[in-house]
Amino acid sequence: MKELICIVCPRGCHLTVDENNGYAVTGNFCKRGEVYGKAEVTAPVRVVTSTVAIHRASAKTAPDAAGGIEARCPVKTSDAIPKHLVLDAMQQIYAASVDLPVHIGDVVIHGICGTGADLVATKDILA
């Protein structure tokens, strides 16, 4: 028996997963908790969110007192990736960059760390 807290939503259900009973999940409020509970014990996965560098065509390299000009573009993995690959993924993410304009959903890295998930932009940044 393994006790977990579900991370699927902010509710944070206290789950119990029974390894000896086909990974049966109890304590979950919804179906997603069951899926999470089983996966967390057998093959845990996480969505990774981070940022990548922005290449700006203009010479404007940032300083702006209103804080409006970002130096980084936020990104996420389009799907959860195996937890043990998270730090490897961060290495790839840090080496990556985007040209502007960039839109939500634009792929920055295809199949990150050999997974089926892409790294995608999570913000529209035009200039």
Partner: peptide, 8 residues
């Protein structure tokens, strides 16, 4: 904080 954040 939320439980899920303590975990992840």
């Amino acid at each position: 904080g939320l439980n899920r954040n303590i975990v992840q």
